[in-house]
Amino acid sequence: MINKIVASVAEALDGVKDGSTVLIGGFGAVGQPDALIEGLIEQGAKNLTIALNNAGSGHVGVARLMEVGRVRKIICSFPRSSDPVVFETLYREGKLELEITPQGTLAERIRAAGAGIPAFYTATAAGTLLARGKETREFDGREYVMEKALKADVALVEAWEADRWGNLVYRGSGANFNPIMAMAAELTVAQVQHIRELGELHPHMVGTPGVYVNRVVQVDRGGDWLKPEAR
C-alpha cells in the first residue's frame, strides 16, 4: 500500500541536510507552508539556499529561518514585501547572498528542472542588469537570455487537500509556485489542511499528482493566519 502521510512535521522534515537547496511555495502567505518552515527551523539544517518569491516579513516563518542564521543564499523575485526587516538587515550586513530572478523566469527555471530541461531562452530581462554574465542568443531578430533550470534537494509546498498517494488539490490562488516546486525537488513535502480518502479527490481537481510528492503532513491552520498582517 502506498501511504505518504506522515504523523508529524518533524517526521515530514526528517533527513534534510545542511547545505540543501530548498524551494518554498507560496505567494505572500497564500500557499505558503508555514508549519513546514517552522519545522525546518526546529529541524536545524543550516547553510541552506532557499528559493521562493518573497523574502519573508516580520520575524516569523522564512524571516525567522534567516534570522536564526540557517540561510546562506536566497533566490527570489521580490525581497521587498511587507516588513522585510530581517532580510534587509542581513543583506545590508553582507550576511546573505541574494540572487534576484524575474518572477516568471524563477517559475520557469523551477518548471524546467521538474520537466528535465536543463536551460531555456527567454526575452525577459534581455538588455538589463539581470542578464549580465548570461549567455544570450538571437532568434527571429530578438535577443533572448539563457536561464538555467533550478533543481532542489527539498521542496516545501502547501495545498488544501491530499490523499495517501500524495495527490494534491489547491485552493484559490494557493497553487502559485507549489505545483512546479513539487516537481523540481528530490524530496517534496506537502503541508495540507485536509486528508481525504483515496478516490475522494476528483481526478480533474488534482493539481499535483502524487508521483511528485514524497511526504504529506496534515496541519490545521486555524483562523489566525487570515489576519491582514499575515499576508
Binding site: 521580490f78 534576484i100 524575474p102 518572477q103 523566469t105 526575452a123 525577459t124 534581455a126 538589463t128 539581470l130
Partner: peptide, 16 residues
C-alpha cells in the same frame, strides 16, 4: 547600494 533590488514580475510583463 544598500537597498536590495526587487523585480517581481515587471521584466516578464515588459517583455511579454
Amino acid at each position: 547600494n544598500d537597498t536590495a533590488p526587487a523585480v517581481g514580475g515587471a521584466m516578464d510583463l515588459a517583455a511579454g
